[in-house]
Design a protein around this nucleic acid. Sequence first.
RNA 1: GAGGGUGUAGCUCAGCUGGUAGAGCAACGGCCUUUUAAGCCGUGGGUCCAGGGUUCGAUUCCCUGCACCCUCACCA
Length: 513
Amino acid sequence: MESFDSLRAQRIEKLEKIRALEIQPYAYRFNRTHRAQEALAAYSPGAGECRVSLAGRLMSLRRMGKASFGHLMDESGRIQIYVQEKEVGPSSYELFRLLDIGDIIGVEGPVFETRTGEITVAAKALTLLSKTLRPLPIVKEKIQDDEKIVYDAFVDKEMRYRRRYVDLVVNSDVKRTFILRSRILAAVRRFLEDRGYLEVETPVLQTQYGGAFARPFVTHHNTLDMQLYLRIADELYLKRLVVGGFEGVFEIAKDFRNEGMDRDHNPEFTMLELYVAYEDYFFMMNLVEEMIRHVCLTVHGHALLRFGDAELDLGKPWQRIPFFDAVREISGFDCYQKNPDELRQIAARLNVLPDGKPGKADLLDAIFSGLVEPRLQQPTFVIDYPIELSPLAKKHRSLPGLVERFEGYVAGKELCNAFSELNDPLDQRRRLEEQAAKRAGGDEEAMAIDEDYIRALEYGLPPTAGLGIGMDRLVMLLTSSPSIRDVIFFPHMRPESISGSGEDVKEQKSDAV
RNA sequence: GAGGGUGUAGCUCAGCUGGUAGAGCAACGGCCUUUUAAGCCGUGGGUCCAGGGUUCGAUUCCCUGCACCCUCACCA
């Protein structure tokens, strides 16, 4: 049999043979002198012998009797190894015969160049560090005319997401994306810290959730015997900190929203929120522009990006267009200060009429997201939103019915949301009461009244500019990833059922919760 | 939630109008001391996603379910 079970059984047999050789197949540590990249760089023809000690995963194997070639991969890259029986000795070569692709080994020896010109480690010693039981997908690559041709690429998306560890081992681009993700996050932190803003942490478990329109995940505290929610936004807690006297605070953390999933949405996602006292939304627009340009330059060295078909220039100032101007330009209808009946007619004409009994906010949202959003390819700030869509934003200083809010769009995706924060406690109460009424009317996503938050505002929130950026989407943009799942290590998936013996059960019915 | 697509060996994929399956790589065996996508020769390997139906016979046709992908809807 060569089923999966037998492939695994073969490896367990090898494992036993290795133990019979009195070799510990799962080592405790290994002394490395170089990583693969360093070893490649360390070699120069004619120079003295360069001896290295490397550890990593065996990624290919070409056995030819008493001499064999293979490739060793560590975090830095790959290097060829050359193993000869006469160099490593019969017992090590016996061990070598029991190795499989995927095994983690240590190799020590001088670096040399083969007849075909590949820099290679000639093994003098071979150490098994971890014997693997499962076969790795074998992906082969060839460079031809500067193009990388990949054979038998590991492409099954479901398996790549469920077994990200395999994806990472086998698909080198994936690792690069996540390294970039880490650098992007670091660059954002550094940018904000350099401006004197303080990174803080606020509760994930909340008795009352708020700060966004979304349904929460519900959980339960056993000892208190009470229902808790996972936060949908950091906003209300961060503004409490501004009340307390912190003049610039930010948090980069997971939010949780109990909604559908698609290319742009994962139930848990990483959000940056920033609040700066004594500033308004114009300040925040400039800051976002500068920050995203800075981060792009930091990680790429340039500000030009390709995303899908679009060529984007993050070096230039973003376009700024008022919400109702954008709607008018793209739809041909002026929606400013229209009543719900008029808006309903317009939405119907535009073929974006929502189901049910849409209110003014729903209609405006439908018209905007249906028509305007997808058109916003180049970096654009849409500014001055209708008040109905923004219960936490401050009324516009001159335009009735609007708030001082902007959203940043790039490549048709919403990237950030910001406003001059509403710091009038009485106005805030009225707005939240309107939300509460919608909520009572069955709108599960409308906000609830957070009495403590209003109390905090009554102690005095300075004029404050607030910002939220979806970090996953920023990473998507900066890594040209079309799906959010490509920038989250372990995107949410329905559970699979795995038996302990090693045999994978493809799937089983899971009772709905 | 709606529509479409996919599910075959460890991996990547063939498999026509129904006759219980193939290839390459990997594995295993043999030969083999400088090979590279894969050294040469050979061998084995399958719950064809699951369950039901039609049929003498189903990987193939039909139904149901499951998972994933795409589009739309919902959703910041």
